[in-house]
Write a protein that binds this DNA or RNA. Structure first.
Lengths: 186, 186
DNA sequence: CCCCACCGTTCGTCAAATAGAACAACATGA
DNA sequence: TCATGTTGTTCTATTTGACGAACGGTGGGG
């Protein structure tokens, strides 16, 4: 499979804006630190123009992010399977049906939690052990969760999985929200 | 730690030449496939000039390599510990000494092989399961091994580790060469 | 030998990316 | 209110990267 055939001009624009706002710098200030004209940066963030490597590199340094983050679209950290989607398995007797959510890693340890949340408070979790993975199935209510800047909204029956070794949050959007949380440690 | 402060113009030049010769394309042909002028490519490979993202991207597509490989210096896929190097552990009684070669991943499965090779034939191995890792300690003789384009030469007592999920080779350089091979599957 | 095809490099030219200044919009404070 | 500091945008001027056409060098055939 060849790499992305589309020149990611738009990706660069989005990434620049995103990273800049994440660090909390003004466009003017970032341009100053990177040693480029702010007009140039403005055009880049608006998707106009095709930066040279030196220009982009300077921005990467000023933002303190690896170069590749600016040019490659972020890999989806969250994988969601909506209720009813996903590969279904039917038993012979048709009185049973299942959906494969995630093929288990053979030798991993799993901790299973039932979490109940009330709206209004955000539960934040720091990074767990490296390569740990979290799986979540919502039982009732609505749940907003996921890594820090890539949250998804889940309803009853929805499934999501995301890496546990990065900061992430849980937040109930309705009263009486509960979910099953499986933490998978390698 | 900030990312590389040095704009990798030279890195790009080297990477381009390397990847192009790996695929076996002429400069003219690669320029044609990438849809850029061969003069441009010539200057890039000579380290002159500062390509735009679109230009570099086109080259990445034509070479069928991810963009980041062209701009970031290659990470060493092979890690070698020469005989006598590495952190030594001494027992209390001083009648025993060990060297830590690799800290084991807790729940990984390991297959241990004793491989004996004679010179003249190259043993090639395709990619194994994702994230598998190979560890090698040479017992006697000389062994040339490693990922396809990043081979190292090992003597008795030398240790090397490299990813198993990429094509790699083994080749004995002396008669009577043998080694212990540990394949680690996550 | 000439001819042709290819290689990679080096020219001059043009378009495009960058820099720099002027700009409107908004905030803060004397 | 007027001054002064932001913000980010949009102008014009200049530098520079990319193109296309030359070049010299090499390897076969006919």
């Amino acid at each position: 499979m060849p790499p992305d055939p589309a020149p990611p001009l738009a990706t660069i624009a989005a990434a620049l804006r995103h990273e800049r706002q994440r660090v909390g710098l003004s466009l003017t200030e970032l341009a100053r630190r990177a040693g480029i004209a702010k007009s140039t940066l403005s055009q880049l963030e608006s998707g106009t123009g095709n930066p040279s490597v030196e220009t982009l590199w300077a921005l990467g340094v000023a933002l303190d992010v690896p170069f590749s983050r600016l040019v490659e679209p972020p890999v989806a950290a969250v994988r969601v399977i909506r209720a009813g989607d996903g590969p279904r398995i039917r038993s012979e007797h048709a009185d049973f049906s299942g959906t494969l959510l995630a093929a288990g890693a053979a030798h991993a340890r799993r901790d299973v939690y039932l979490i109940e949340l009330e709206p209004g408070r955000v539960r934040s979790a720091a990074a767990h052990t490296p390569r740990s993975v979290e799986h979540l199935v919502v039982g009732a209510g609505r749940l907003r969760c996921g890594p820090e800047h890539e949250q998804v909204e889940l309803g009853p029956g929805d499934y999501a999985t995301f890496p546990g070794d990065a900061p992430h949050h849980y937040e109930a959007l309705e009263p009486g929200t509960f979910a099953v949380l499986i933490m998978e440690h390698p």
